[in-house]
């Protein structure tokens, strides 16, 4: 049964992979799929804070915005390559993460949440009002799409031609997004079972016990914040070079809420859950976008459903809808053994 399920899963993955190359492909569907991938990366990035460290971050979209604007502005002013911009945007996001994190990560609980919220609102205000830099509410249009320039390779090989491929349409972005999701996913899986990840989980379970075991709380939290911010900024850079237009109102609080909702839906601290949460909520959003006007309601009211989902999940399934999946995510033998011993002692 499990084997058959796995085979089915692989088949589905293969079908999804091949879909953009088949003649049945549809631009709209592809667009939604790429959007899902952006949110998958965001959800995995956010998951580090409330999921691994137990810190509620309400300002995640601030880093997403910083990444997107870093990418957008570097592209239109310096025409920099996407492959250079992504690390730069991630570093810039992480830099702001550290700047915000060092003074505020001493706070816990609600206060930390509020400070991050204030930060993301300040980011939006800055993007709206510093017109000299960001063009303000008009946004930044005309960002060049991603391109791969291999002319240097051609000259190296002595071929006299321009090997340059500019991304057009959704298909190349589909694969680029997939690459990004896979990279972040693998990184997260490795992080979760690393020394760093164990320290984070220890902080989440019991900060005092963690500190007495030699975990430097502030340092590990700042690292978590920086990594999370860097991933958010990376997703922002991709987003900017994909939609080719960014404006401040794309980075409002609701986006933070939406990403948080995905993480909560999938189960806090559950990487697979974050992916599933992104798929469900973006798909739901698209469905409601079609369904709501038919009922004579504005499309913004789809947030009604999101709010309700959040409340119901917290009430009835606080571990997310996939608690079983959450338990199988952990691969570290050490932690599994410790958990088993703890469970045995509890029942005894």
């Amino acid at each position: 049964m499990r084997g058959a399920f796995k085979t089915l899963l692989y088949l589905a993955a293969a079908a999804a992979l091949a879909y953009p190359l088949t003649p049945f492909r549809d631009v709209y569907v592809l667009h939604v799929l790429v959007l899902i991938m952006v949110y998958m990366v965001l959800a995995m990035g956010l998951n580090i804070l409330p999921g691994f460290c137990g810190l509620l971050d309400l300002g995640f979209v601030g880093f997403y915005g910083i990444g997107a604007y870093t990418a957008g502005l570097l592209t239109i002013h310096y025409n920099m390559s996407f492959w250079l911009i992504v690390p730069l945007a991630a570093v810039n996001g992480a830099f702001f993460g550290v700047m915000l994190g060092v003074p505020t990560l001493r706070l816990v609980g609600d206060y930390f949440a509020i400070v991050t919220f204030g930060f993301s609102e300040l980011v939006v205000l800055f993007l709206t009002n510093e017109i000299w830099l960001t063009r303000g509410p008009l946004g930044v249009p005309g960002i060049a799409p991603v391109s791969i320039d291999a002319t240097w390779l051609a000259t190296l090989l002595g071929v006299d031609s321009r090997w340059r491929y500019a991304f057009r349409g959704e298909v190349p972005y589909f694969y680029l997004g997939l690459l990004m999701v896979i990279l972040v996913y693998c990184g997260m899986r490795r992080l979760e079972d690393s020394r760093l990840g164990r320290a984070w989980l220890a902080i989440r379970e019991d900060p005092m016990a963690a500190a007495s075991c030699g975990v430097d709380l502030l340092a590990y939290k700042v690292i978590a914040f920086a990594v999370s911010a860097g991933i958010g900024a990376m997703a922002g850079a991709f987003f900017a070079r994909w939609t080719l237009f960014i404006s401040p109102d794309m980075f409002k609080f609701w986006e933070s809420f939406l990403v948080l909702c995905m993480v909560v839906l999938g189960g806090l601290g559950n990487i697979n859950g974050a992916l599933v949460g992104a798929v469900i909520l973006i798909a739901l959003g698209e469905l409601l976008r079609v369904a709501l006007p038919r009922l004579g309601l504005p499309t913004e009211t789809r947030f009604l459903a999101y709010g309700l989902i959040m409340v119901l999940i917290m009430r009835f399934r606080p571990g997310g809808i996939f608690t079983q999946v959450a338990e199988t995510t952990m691969q570290s033998g050490l932690i599994k053994e410790l958990r088993a011993r703890l469970a045995a002692r509890r029942t005894a």
Binding site: L56, A113, V311
Partner: peptide, 12 residues
């Protein structure tokens, strides 16, 4: 965390 997330959910 659960109560705080619920509060945001209710707000929206």
């Amino acid at each position: 965390l659960a109560a705080l997330i619920t509060a945001i959910g209710m707000s929206i």
